[in-house]
Design a protein around this nucleic acid. Structure first.
Length: 492
RNA sequence: GCGCCGGUGGCGAAGCGGUUAACGCGCAGGUCUGCAAAACCUGUAUACGCGGGUUCAACUCCCGCCCGGCGCUCCA
């Protein structure tokens, strides 16, 4: 099973395989830790997670490097405003980012690299660029990349800059640059600003250089895949290519994957539109982390995804059905043997599932065979035609589904609980949905007691009291399920 | 303005030259139940933005238009 993945560089769907035949070396642009992550950020990280999980499912090892941008204009500005060091400032958001990844079940990359811890590597790279005539220093001490030194500039974003005139676009404070499009490699220190004293002067790195330096540090001069949000194609990734290849004269990344931006209610997500959501916002509204994960990955990465609360509710229902199905299989008692028809269904579902993902990570298509199998198996169970061997085969298919989607295990309460703890500590309790608070206020023991009381009332045929208890619990988000094996309850 | 992507049933969303046009959600019936809920089953009478064209055949290719989005500047 080989993955065919769209490659921004070639503009085609190309095979993706490790060049060394062993491990796929990939670099994915991580967060700038100046604020809490929003769902747009997480769509990208989640789609990259789908990629790496699928690779591993098909037996390919992954060496995945992600940068943490912990120095940039916004960080400098916000930290100064808060009167703390940039390290103190970013630590909060970096920690929050990791917690959010965990809530969303995003696997940790093999290497997480902070920009501030790789300054020497960036300096070295800039020195090499200077030696190659591709970098120059301006009067204020900043360093710029000379676009004219890299004729292939524009090959990723398919821009032809040859015809572009500099004149009209020169910013006043960039008058020193040779060409308006030359970009900063190193920014000279301004008074009071956090800076590093280095061989190329006192200052701080430009945005792009960190990725080139760290990717080469951990993956070598040439590696398999580079991924990120679509907005990074230009200028960020284009600049990375220019910086890196001007020094190495080797292809920087062979394959480039870009995740499409999402919309919220059909419009661009933005704070001014009032449709801007962090993961924490959603958890505090009572949406489950698993539903957010499923919603964010169910539309293939190259398609625009329109985020809505209805979509979250849909994902919640779909997950519930899948979980119930798996539980039914696990708990059921089945005669030994195999039903050939179900064996065939399982095999077919597995093959279709893998084929869909192998086809440019078509997650939407990949879901279909799983639900087909669910229906076939439920029908068979209703008719007593499902045997123990079928159960095992079907559970195996679910396991490979979950190896990528990872929504079947219920860890939602934990993620929600943590979000609530954070809300308390961050003074964000007013953002918590009232139902969620009511729900949390009810202990398991209290629920058990009410359920027991209701069972007794039922036995005495006091249905009025029984229904009263049921309604009371329902209002607090606790759903009761009567079955022959007793009463089960769960928090909605 | 230039470049790129998309408009599929009530909603979300695959497919992309000939298929019964997946799948999910919702809704409606049914089974079960004290009644429900949950679960399961079944169903959802002519859904492919508009107008041209190419073709034996178009949702699928081409052209134009309308609408939405993205990039060209910080942004996942």
């Amino acid at each position: 099973m080989t993955l065919r993945l769209f490659n921004t560089l070639t503009g085609e769907v190309d095979l993706l395989a490790p060049a060394d035949g062993v491990a796929l070396r990939m670099y994915a642009c991580g967060p700038t830790v100046y604020d809490y992550g929003h769902i747009g950020n997480f769509r990208t990280f989640l789609q990259v997670d789908v990629l790496r999980r699928f690779l591993r499912l098909t037996g390919i090892k992954v060496r995945h490097v992600m940068n943490i941008t912990d120095v940039d204009d916004r960080i400098l500005h916000n930290a100064a405003e808060a009167g703390v060091s940039i390290r103190e400032y970013t630590a909060v958001y970096e920690q929050a980012f990791f917690e959010d990844l965990e809530a969303l079940r995003v696997e940790r990359p093999e290497v997480m690299a902070r920009a501030t811890e790789h300054i020497p590597r960036m300096v070295e790279l800039i020195q090499k660029l200077a030696a190659a005539g591709a970098a120059y220093q301006t009067e204020d001490g900043s360093w710029y990349f000379r676009l004219a030194a890299f004729p292939e500039y524009g090959k990723l974003s398919k821009k032809d800059l040859s015809g572009m005139e500099d004149g009209a676009r020169v910013d006043l404070d960039e008058y020193e640059k040779d060409s308006a499009r030359d970009f900063a490699l190193w920014k000279a220190a301004k008074p009071g600003e956090t800076s590093w004293d280095t061989a190329i002067g006192r200052g701080r790195p430009g945005w792009h250089i960190e990725c080139s330096a760290m990717a080469m540090e951990y993956l070598g001069e040439s590696f398999d895949l580079h991924a990120g949000g679509e907005d990074l194609i230009f200028p960020h990734h284009e600049n990375e290519i220019a910086q890196s290849e001007s020094v190495t004269h080797k292809t920087f990344a062979r394959h480039w994957m870009h995740v499409r931006f999402l919309l919220v209610d059909g419009r661009k997500m933005s704070k001014s539109e009032g449709n801007f959501y962090t993961l924490r916002d959603l958890l505090l509204k009572g949406y489950k982390a698993s539903a957010i994960r499923l919603a964010l990955i169910s539309v293939p990465y190259r398609h625009q995804f329109n985020f809505t609360f209805d979509g979250l509710i849909e994902a919640t229902s779909a997950i519930e059905r899948l979980r119930t199905f798996r539980e039914r299989l696990r708990m059921g008692v089945f005669a030994t043997g195999e039903n050939p028809a179900l064996q065939a269904s399982a095999k077919k579902a597995q093959a279709e599932y893998l084929a869909a993902l192998a086809n440019d990570l078509n997650t939407a298509e990949a879901r279909a065979p799983i639900f087909d199998l669910l229906r076939a198996a439920n029908t068979a169970m209703d008719q007593g035609l499902l045997l123990a061997g079928d159960r095992d085969a079907i559970l195996a298919v679910l396991a490979s589904f979950d190896a990528v989607f990872d929504v079947l295990e219920d860890r939602d309460a934990e993620a929600t609980r943590r979000a609530l703890e954070w809300a308390v500590q961050a003074g964000r309790l007013s953002d918590v949905a009232p139902e969620l608070l009511a729900r949390q206020g009810l202990t398991d023991e209290a629920i058990d007691a009410l359920v027991a009381e209701r069972s007794l009332a039922k036995k005495q045929r006091n249905f009025a009291r029984a229904d009263q208890i049921r309604n009371e619990l329902a209002e607090k988000g606790v759903v009761l399920e009567d079955s022959k094996d007793g009463v089960r309850w769960k928090r909605k």
